[in-house]
Amino acid sequence: MNRQPPLDIVLVAYPAAQKAALYGLTDLFAVADEVSRKRQERAAPVLRVLSMDPDRFTGASSGREGDSTSLPDAPSVVIIPPSLTGPPNPETVPELLTWLRTCHEGGSILAAVCAGTFLLAATGLLDGRPATTHWSAAARLQQAFPAIRIDPDRLLVDDGDILTVGGIMSWPDLGLRLIDRLLGPAAMLETARYLLIDPPRHDQRHYRHFVPDLTHGDRTILKVQHWLRTEAARNATVADMTSVSGLEERTFLRRFHKVTSHTPLDYLQRLRVEKSRDLLETTALPLEQIAWEAGYQGSGAFRKIFTRLMGQTPADYRRRFSPAGSSRE
């Protein structure tokens, strides 16, 4: 009989933590535990989920027995869930940050979902490493922690001992990835099939919206940004943008990148792709017409740029996000 102790997974249940993630991950791991016990013909638990109050550093088992237990010194995994209002200010939970570092030193896998990445980043353990968070918070995370290599296009970054996940509701992707890591791909796939959820995704580009910064205070560049929204700018070029600014080209390029964090061409392409997304979602126009409406002279260039920025072709995007789920391409 297998007498190995269960693998401990600790959920950091800070006050604003998303309840759906806390309960959902507990249920997800409970199913994985049941699946693995049957596969191994084992009576004892394979996984044990503990909920940790950051103020007390003690936890109550989230298993079916509901017994109370102290947290292990180095659990197999520690997960910082997402939040709709943000995690606690790191300065208010210094002992939690210390505990996370200690767990990591002891061999624990650390994981964070969405806004939880901010709390994990405050430990310093993400410095110099790749990570992701919700696409809308990526710039803020980068500004607060410039040493982190943030990739907002990726939904899940598995860097071995540290995992970060982007979307608020992407905790199932994290849970399944951890089940794969802890119990193997067969247990992960069986858990996913039982719960009727897809195996882990990797990309959040097709959920990410381009929201330009219009509060930077550079009125000359703001004039160009506003002009790009007009019909006259449908076929705009970088030369046109420079002309509208009234600046010398090198000065325009430098100032534009400084306040928008994009080159003029990249900014223009993102605006066009954003417009095409709306047309793909809300109309049945053929791709050639959508390309023209967005400012492209041909559908070939449109498909190439759309796929690069969104991680899937325009046709695939329409099938996934259009209510009708069909197109005339």
Rank of each mutant, 00 (worst) to 15 (best):
D153W: 08
E190C: 09
A186T: 15
A137R: 12
V165C: 08
I150M: 05
R193T: 13
T132D: 12
I168R: 05
T132W: 07
L196P: 06
D158V: 05
F145Q: 06
G175W: 02
L141R: 07
R181P: 10
M169C: 13
R177N: 12
A144N: 10
L189T: 15
T191R: 04
T133G: 08
G175T: 04
D153H: 10
Q142N: 10
D158H: 04
L195F: 06
W135G: 10
W171F: 15
M169N: 13
R154C: 11
R177Q: 15
P152L: 01
F145P: 07
L141S: 08
G184E: 08
S170D: 11
R181Q: 14
V157T: 07
A192Q: 03
A144H: 08
I197E: 07
R181Y: 10
I150E: 00
I150W: 00
G184M: 07
I197T: 14
R154H: 12
P172H: 09
H134D: 12
L163P: 04
G184Q: 06
R193F: 11
I162E: 03
L182A: 10
T133H: 05
A144V: 05
I168K: 06
P130N: 04
A186R: 15
E190G: 05
I162W: 02
P152K: 03
D158R: 00
A192C: 05
G160F: 05
I168A: 07
P152A: 06
I150N: 00
V157S: 02
F145H: 11
R154F: 06
R149K: 13
R177Y: 09
L156F: 02
S170M: 03
L178S: 04
G167D: 07
Q143G: 14
L163C: 01
D151Y: 05
L155R: 11
A138T: 08
A192V: 04
A139N: 14
A192S: 08
G167L: 03
T164W: 00
L182I: 12
A186S: 15
I162S: 02
P172F: 06
A192R: 00
S170E: 08
A186N: 13
